[in-house]
Design a protein around this nucleic acid. Structure first.
Lengths: 209, 209
DNA sequence: AACCATACCAAGCAAGCGCTTGGTTTGTAA
DNA sequence: TTACAAACCAAGCGCTTGCTTGGTATGGTT
């Protein structure tokens, strides 16, 4: 939300993706609408959030929403597409920063915890928990992007398993980790004592002994 | 769903709870409505499921729903209350069957995996993922029941930690486990090769080394 | 035979929903 | 000064929603 105190490499990543037209500039009216939509969809749920709610949140009339998106579901779709594009890019650059499989897994965990509890937390929660709200065609579209994201996880976990750091089935492990990490959106309090780094190290012990 | 091939101790548990008036008899019209509601709420989501959908699912008119419940949300409330009452009772009897902390944790995992993927899977998923659909007062009511359920987990995990089987913070561990296990409702296929017992043992290795 | 609770129907109402339409303002650039 | 796209308003339309109302069928008990 607060664009000021964000790490410079994140700002650069956003700028690059905006320049490529892969994500909406958060400083434009459309971008601000997306940010407010993410928040409302997360807190109230997609179905209970009306276009009048969205409009009021950015200070415009309800009909004006449809100047930016042709339907309410297009907002949800854009939200999901952009949040996964952003976090996939982020994860790829994080993976490149280490060779040690254990460190790589830790980095993935850090990245996903950040994704769901940090800057992109609202949109990420919506991606995970409002999946049913997308119609089949749109699900298909997002699934392509999610598969890329998931493959990064699976490859890294497989690498760690080859080195004997993991005994579990990597598919089951990944799904367990995804559930565990995603669920933290319901209980983690950024203003509390616990840091995301502490949580990341706890999560690592779930996967690697 | 299929009341025929269910373990006899489960049938007895249900009968006892019905006799106490703590859960609705699934063989009555009201009970059948609750079962269909659980299914529809899970698949379509609470908000997208209309009272007309519910009525059609049990073969009555939409207005007749309100002979059984005074509002749509009362259905959701009853659903959540009964599923947690049932699974708390089930978990208590399972905990009594062992003294070994590790075995106890495994039993809790088995029980929760069964709860979310077995007979009560629909209602349990709704309890976990439709929390926002309840208004504050109703949340408060259910929270009392959830706290009892959660305490069973926390006590057992604390016991295992005392014996050195767990190094993690038990609160964080419990929340991670809850997320991991609950999320399995989105990917576990009862008709597939993997058994819940296999999944339970994989989950145990998340908690205990 | 009389009674009554349970379970339902038929019809419809008020409110809220997503979205449309035709027009207006605003900033930028030629 | 004109031109034009982006951003927005005011009004409202057609439809769906949860729920209400007044009445009816059925089966068990007294």
């Amino acid at each position: 939300m607060n664009v000021v105190d964000v790490a410079p490499e994140i700002l650069k990543l956003v700028d690059d993706l905006v320049a490529d037209g892969r994500v909406t500039d958060p400083r434009t009216p459309k971008g601000r609408l997306l940010a407010k939509a993410a928040k409302l969809f997360r807190v109230k749920g997609y179905e209970r959030t009306t276009v009048r709610d969205l409009a009021a949140a950015v200070g415009i009339q309800s009909g004006s929403i449809f100047h930016h998106f042709k339907s309410k579901e297009e907002i949800l779709l854009a939200l999901m597409r952009e949040v996964i594009v952003f976090n996939t890019s982020r994860m790829q650059s994080m993976l490149a920063s280490s060779d040690n499989p254990k460190e790589k897994v830790l980095n993935l965990i850090r990245c996903e915890l950040e994704a769901i509890n940090g800057l992109t937390g609202n949109a990420m929660s919506v991606l995970v928990y409002e999946w049913r709200s997308l119609n089949k065609d749109n699900q298909k579209q997002i699934l392509v992007l999610r598969d890329i994201y998931e493959q990064l996880w699976l490859d890294t976990l497989a690498e760690a398993k080859e080195q004997g750091m993991i005994v579990a089935d990597v598919f089951v492990l990944r799904r367990y980790l995804m559930g565990a990490i995603s669920w933290s959106t319901t209980w983690y309090d950024p203003k509390g004592d616990m840091t995301l780094e502490t949580m990341a190290r706890e999560a690592l012990t779930l996967a690697i002994k």
